[in-house]
Design a protein around this nucleic acid. Sequence first.
DNA 1: TATATAGTGGACTATTATAGTCCCATATAT
DNA 2: ATATATGGGACTATAATAGTCCACTATATA
Lengths: 154, 154
Amino acid sequence: MLKMGKLTDYATVIMNFLAQNPGEVHAASELANVVGISAQTALKVLKTLSKAGLLQSQRGTKGGYQLTRPAQHISMADILQAMEGPIGLTECGSSPGACVRESQCSVKTNWQRISQAVHEALAKVSLADMAAPPSQPIYFVKSAPDLTHAAVSA
Amino acid sequence: MLKMGKLTDYATVIMNFLAQNPGEVHAASELANVVGISAQTALKVLKTLSKAGLLQSQRGTKGGYQLTRPAQHISMADILQAMEGPIGLTECGSSPGACVRESQCSVKTNWQRISQAVHEALAKVSLADMAAPPSQPIYFVKSAPDLTHAAVSA
DNA sequence: TATATAGTGGACTATTATAGTCCCATATAT
DNA sequence: ATATATGGGACTATAATAGTCCACTATATA
């Protein structure tokens, strides 16, 4: 399936929600409710997004998270990369020296080329593209934490 | 990382090897040696590729596997799909009805669009593109079954 | 036609990766 | 001060994947 992890899925829902409410600060517990997951898990995702520089955090009472830049300038590649590390279908390329005759390996070059193409496909789509117009209602998710990425939108 | 499974990695190495030796029938045990994995595991991969119609099998003595069509007409998307099922980054789309307000969900549509783009990137690259010219030497892999995809080539 | 070779199908187990939770520390508004 | 909220890291549970095993079927050839 070539699928991304659940946490990445949560991340896209959270980012989507924040994109729909620009300039506002939202606490982890609130965002957890939006996605339908525990506060702890939401925190884990938020920390990761924060460290990657996609979210700005504010501590203390009335603290929370907001996007560091407009949704137009955040791509799905940014989010994927923040959650799962550099985009690449194979290990080869990330861990040099692990493979015999690496330098002459045409397969490696081609995998890198493919990964690059995938990256570009993801970079083309911005968070703003994904998000619905803010005027429309926001729909919440059932309890199942699985298919949440489809939840916040209209 | 958005990475594919190990078995898919093995599959690409095997397919690559077979592409370099067109018209020849190779037994599972031989292919296992090429990749550096057990015959059982190789068999598992080969069965999957066979069921997907990418490989033609021949039973009995002197039996084995070969490509069903020229390497130019087998894409990396074909192999990925054979090994991991339909290409898609999210579940949503595959399991309809799982998400509230599914029909109005713009996120879903966009994920499908992204998955489609990824699919196209993979479909563009043929097995022939990946394989080195047959005249050049073939390099074998170390013992580590991890980074094998980079092994067979030149 | 007996036998050795090689693939088929399915089930099972081990391993690994992921997701989820918990704890203690730090920051900040009131 | 204190309640609220994030930061960082470690730990555990769960799920997905990889790997193995078994009984069966097909086929070349001696």
